[in-house]
């Protein structure tokens, strides 16, 4: 048995410690907002936060996440009101949407450490892939989220 904190809840799970965190989140716990894209940390569709830092859960062993606060897209905010989520809705960013949970989690982590990122910061930090090519809208939405977060 292994104990995991996900979205502020504790789960006691019967999983092998080497299981990728992604599959524990999706199959065992049943939170499917975190996506499987490549299994090699190449695309970022599986991005979640470990203590607020973005990780690619497809290559993160579940044992590495024990004792840390794991946040998935479902737990990013109480009512999908994280500035990034609001900005994403305002800009109608998603197309197929499959990568967008990961994009938003990556963006939220960036905004947490850098409240006002430049285009260069965004290009350096957000390396998640999007087949529909929504990169320009993502960039605009991150700037908008920074603006929303700065509002009192």
């Amino acid at each position: 048995m292994l104990s995991l904190r996900v979205n502020r809840k504790t789960y006691n799970l019967d999983v092998e410690p080497e299981t990728p965190l992604l599959w524990v989140i999706r199959d065992t716990i049943g939170l499917t907002g975190t996506k499987f894209g490549c299994g090699m940390a190449l695309c970022g569709a599986c991005t979640v936060h470990l203590n607020g830092k973005p990780v690619r859960s497809c290559v993160t062993r579940v044992s590495q996440a024990v004792g840390q606060e794991i946040t998935t897209i479902e737990g990013l905010s109480a009512n999908a009101q994280h500035p990034a989520q609001i900005a994403w809705r305002e800009g109608d960013v998603p197309e197929c949407g499959y990568c967008q949970s990961g994009q938003i989690m990556a963006a939220a982590a960036l905004l947490a450490k850098n409240p006002n990122p430049t285009d260069v910061d965004i290009q350096r930090e957000i390396t998640n892939l999007c087949r529909c090519g929504t990169y320009l809208r993502i960039r605009q939405a991150i700037h908008r989220a920074a603006e929303l977060a700065a509002k009192p």
Binding site: K9, Y11, I29, G30, T32, A78
Partner: peptide
Amino acid sequence: VTTLAVGGGLALGFSFPKNDAER
């Protein structure tokens, strides 16, 4: 599949927060 939720129970599947009126 032992997924014991501590404090609040675990909804398998498609739960998502939805108490925000606008959203």
